Simulated assay, not measured.
Amino acid sequence: MSNSVTRPRIAVTLGDPAGVGGELVAKLLSDPQTAARADLVLISDEAELAVAGADAGVPIDYAAAGADSDGRPRLHHTCARRPGEFERRVATEAGGRWALDNLEIALGLAKAGEVDAILFAPLNKTSLHLAGMQEQDELRWFEDYLEETGFTSELNVLPGLWTARVTSHVSIARVDEGITRDNVTAAAHLLHRVLHESDIAAPRIGVCALNPHAGENGSFGRHELDIIGPAVADLRAEGLDVSGPFPSDTIFLRREEFDGILTMYHDQGQIAMKLLGFDGGVTVAGGLRIPICTPAHGTAFDVVGKGVANTGSIRNAFDLAVRIAGKRALAASS
Rank of each mutant, 00 (worst) to 15 (best):
D249H: 15
A47S: 12
A106Q: 08
T78D: 08
S248C: 09
R72D: 01
L155H: 04
E148R: 13
L139H: 00
R37W: 10
A272K: 09
D16W: 10
A50K: 00
G298D: 07
I227F: 10
N102D: 02
G281F: 03
L262R: 13
G269R: 02
L24Y: 04
T250K: 00
H129V: 13
E87D: 15
A56G: 13
P212L: 03
D199P: 03
G244M: 10
C208E: 01
F252S: 02
I179N: 04
L40A: 00
H297D: 05
D144T: 15
A325C: 00
H196L: 00
M273N: 04
G221N: 01
K327D: 08
E238F: 09
A117T: 14
A272N: 15
D267V: 05
R181L: 11
C79S: 15
L253Y: 15
T163F: 00
H169V: 10
E138R: 02
R181G: 07
G66S: 05
A237H: 14
Y265D: 12
I292N: 06
D267L: 07
F151Q: 09
A214D: 12
A47L: 07
D31P: 11
C293A: 15
N211M: 14
K327E: 11
A56P: 08
A321C: 14
D267C: 05
A117C: 11
P230F: 08
P32N: 08
E148M: 09
A121R: 01
G280I: 11
G15A: 12
I60G: 11
D249C: 14
A296F: 09
D55N: 08
A11Y: 13
A214R: 15
K306P: 01
A54F: 07
A117F: 12
L161R: 04
Y62I: 04
A80E: 10
V58E: 08
S2L: 13
G229P: 05
T152N: 01
L103G: 07
D249T: 15
F220G: 11
D144W: 06
L75R: 12
S30A: 15
F246E: 00
A121W: 04
G312D: 06
A52Q: 03
E104S: 15
D176T: 02
G286T: 14
L107R: 08
R81D: 10
A131T: 14
V184N: 10
L253N: 15
T6A: 01
G221S: 05
D61S: 07
M1C: 01
D70N: 03
N183C: 05
L107D: 07
D45I: 02
E85I: 02
A26F: 14
L190N: 11
I43K: 04
L14G: 02
A112L: 08
Q268T: 14
T250Y: 00
R323T: 14
I227P: 05
D279Q: 14
G21S: 06
S198R: 03
A99M: 15
S171V: 02
Q134M: 12
